[in-house]
Design a protein around this nucleic acid. Structure first.
Lengths: 195, 195
DNA sequence: CCTACCGATCGGTAGG
DNA sequence: CCTACCGATCGGTAGG
């Protein structure tokens, strides 16, 4: 179990470096220095640089998929489900900012076959999210619109939290979710303004 | 002027490579191959790899700053200004997708002093955008909220267009702007739903 | 977990 | 615009 902890330390240090410099610009010597090891000693805990990226990306993909599983089971209306999904993204982002940023920005450096698997998972996640938006549009909870454009606008609007939360924790995770849910659900415009 | 054209070709090829592989993973040999040159011959047109990144990032920063200049002069209400800013982002993204993606994702690989200068420009742009949101909240056009959180949510919601537009041109730039303005201004929820 | 080291590739220069 | 080449650094292995 001493082994296990060391590997975890390496993965965490790698996430920080990948976030700050990106995967290709992070050398195994950088990483070794961060955990007080020689570069060659890293290979007692991980099998390759690519292996580290895969663990980070797959681990986070899993968190999102488990999250949407739970939400589909415990919420019924499209409004509740979208609100819960927004909360999920904020919660994941705020409880492990560095890992999620690496996941978001560096997945494209995955090699095959991991890359295809990762894209598959993401496609599934997006399809389920889009289905919820479509249901909301069909049953009148949401205004009509292009579900794909709506999906990407919502998903994308959550991404800044990954880059921003951490150095700027002046706002609690709960307050942040509430603010963002308000903006996404209700828009900028005041409710009593002209349509 | 043959020189000038060749440099432009190099910058465009570099933008494609930076978008696809990222700045650190793009080698000067990759770039040379893309423009049918030997790696060493690139240096007759550009002075360094860093020089290419700087031109791409500064050029796009300029487009955004000129855009917001124009909007502040020609629009008065916060609603019009935010709508015009959204259109600006979509327009810039759709008329030169590759360059803008490199600008968005690779600027952090700028070296000093370019990095500081770039951050400065971005800070100014964000401050002006935020000021418009604050004015809208003060005069009642927009619902009250945290201007900083609102700013980032709006800015971020526009970012997916950079990654997505290009292979997916099934939607015109105008239609896309209209849809996104609707979502950001009015939110997901139907206007007649409970608050 | 270390020392020693590998072949490959990097950004860039010299010189023409 | 090319050939030839530089020192530095890369991810990773051998062997203990």
């Amino acid at each position: 179990m001493g082994e296990k902890t060391k590997k975890q330390l390496i993965l965490e240090a790698a996430a920080v470096l990948f976030r700050d410099k990106g995967y290709p610009a992070t050398s195994m010597r950088d990483l070794a220095r961060a955990v007080n090891l020689q570069a060659s000693s890293l290979y007692n805990h991980i099998s390759s640089k690519q292996d580290i990226l895969r663990e980070i990306c797959f681990g986070n993909a899993r968190r999102f998929l488990l999250g949407i599983d739970h939400i589909e089971q415990h919420h019924r209306s499209a409004t509740d489900r979208v609100a819960a999904l927004i909360e999920l993204h904020i919660q994941i982002a705020t409880e492990d900012v560095t890992s999620i940023t690496a996941f978001n920005d560096e997945w494209r450096h995955l090699e095959e076959p991991a890359l295809t698997r990762f894209r598959e998972w993401r496609k599934q996640y997006e399809a389920r999210f889009r289905r919820i938006i479509e249901e909301g549009m069909e049953n009148g909870e949401f205004r009509a619109g292009d579900p794909q454009i709506t999906l990407y606008t919502v998903l994308s609007s959550l991404r800044w939290v990954y880059d921003w939360y951490g150095p700027n924790r002046r706002v609690s995770s709960g307050k942040l979710s509430e603010s963002i849910i308000n903006i996404i659900m209700g828009g900028l415009r005041r409710g009593d303004a002209k349509n």
